[in-house]
Design a protein around this nucleic acid. Structure first.
Length: 346
DNA sequence: TCTGGGGTCCTAGGACCC
DNA sequence: TCTGGGGTCCTAGGACCC
């Protein structure tokens, strides 16, 4: 018997949930995002079905662009409560299996398992999720979380893949560094400046040199990641959020100070409601301002632990007052941070 | 096509104290 | 009269993920 990590990755999750409740959509290009109106400005695609992706539609793309690329697509509004519920169904199905479950998002989970036959267990995971929820997923098998996640990604949609320390070099070394989860475009560019372009080159790098460039934690972590290492703990304890936030990109830029203050007050009230629902106390309140030029600034202040809506709103307005606003504002955000540790009260 | 929303974690610099 | 360092707290920004 050996320990393995399985990564469960639901296929086109939001679109799949919509198709499940409206089976007549099966086989059609479906695009989920915004209010479901593809002509709406400043809204983007949350998820596209595979049929829509075939037309070049992908997450993060403006809805208007998606409409241009795929005029025949069915555009649906995003429905977070429905995705919460569907996700809970999937996680409940997974909990029935002999696994330790760590929820990693609406459409992702890690399973800690001890077995001689991880392939058989992976097949059982797929079958159970499909049978209980009607939803399809890919399953990746690995010795670390990054291995399991990459294994799942490689076989989407719907497959079962395996990646281990033994198969890592042949599978990963020739790939570009941004194939690693945690290495994005910026880090890839900084690595390229140093002649490091592939996972194999990063794996062979000196962690001390990278520490000097990327910092004492990030530098060595990048090398570890390139060697197939990484987190291998699967925690079943419920996740304690570090923060709650609300932000809005407005259909038209805001310019007037009173208008900005009113908008921040609305966001702060929403955050306060979320915080109250969590039963937690806030120790820091922050505000985000994105100008029409897309420059984004944040400011925050420490507060005495509170869950009082008026105090949270007051703090947000005080922080807003510290911004020099010299351009129209396209986005405002309010964020509340919780005290570290378990401060949950009734 | 001008570029969403909700998160996490890390880094760096200044203040302040010993 | 000038000069150290270390440690911690606070803040702003950035990178990344789904």
């Amino acid at each position: 018997m050996r320990d393995w990590i399985l990564h469960v990755d639901l296929d086109q999750f939001l679109a799949a949930v919509e198709i499940r409740r409206r089976p007549e959509l099966r086989g059609l290009p479906v695009v989920v995002g915004g209010n479901g109106d593809p002509t709406e400005a400043r809204k983007v695609v949350a998820t596209a079905s595979y049929e829509a992706r075939a037309h070049g539609v992908h997450s993060g793309m403006p809805l208007r662009a998606a409409l241009r690329r795929c005029p025949d697509a069915v555009f649906l509004p995003s429905d977070p409560p429905a995705y919460d519920a569907a996700s809970a169904e999937v996680m409940a199905a997974l909990r029935e299996l002999p696994v330790v479950l760590e929820v990693a998002g609406w459409d992702e989970a890690y399973l800690g398992v001890r077995t001689d036959d991880p392939q058989a267990l992976a097949r059982r995971v797929r079958a159970t999720v499909l049978e209980r929820t009607g939803l399809s997923c890919a399953v990746g098998i690995g010795e670390t979380k990054p291995q399991a996640k990459l294994a799942a990604q490689a076989v989407k949609p719907g497959g079962i893949g395996c990646l281990t320390y033994a198969t890592w070099p042949e599978t990963m070394h020739a790939k570009p560094v941004d194939a690693l989860v945690g290495v994005g475009a910026r880090t890839a560019a900084r690595l390229a400046e140093r002649g490091i372009r592939t996972v194999g080159e990063l794996a062979a790098s000196d962690h001390r040199e990278l520490a000097a460039v990327f910092g004492p934690t990030t530098g060595p972590w990048l090398v570890l990641l390139a060697r197939g290492g990484g987190d291998r703990t699967v925690a079943s304890e419920p996740w304690q959020a570090r923060s709650r936030s609300r932000e809005t990109t407005y259909p038209q830029d805001l310019v007037d100070r009173d208008e900005l203050a009113a908008a921040v007050a609305v966001l702060a009230e929403q955050v306060a409601r979320d915080v109250a629902a969590d039963g937690r106390k806030v120790v820091r309140v922050g505000v985000k301002v994105r100008s029409s030029s897309f420059r984004t600034r944040t400011k925050a202040m420490k507060v005495q632990p509170t869950r009082d809506a008026a105090l949270i709103r007051g703090a947000a307005l005080e922080v807003l007052g510290r911004f020099e606003i010299d351009r129209p504002v396209r986005l405002l955000g309010v964020r509340a941070e919780f005290a570290p540790g378990n401060d949950v009260t009734v």
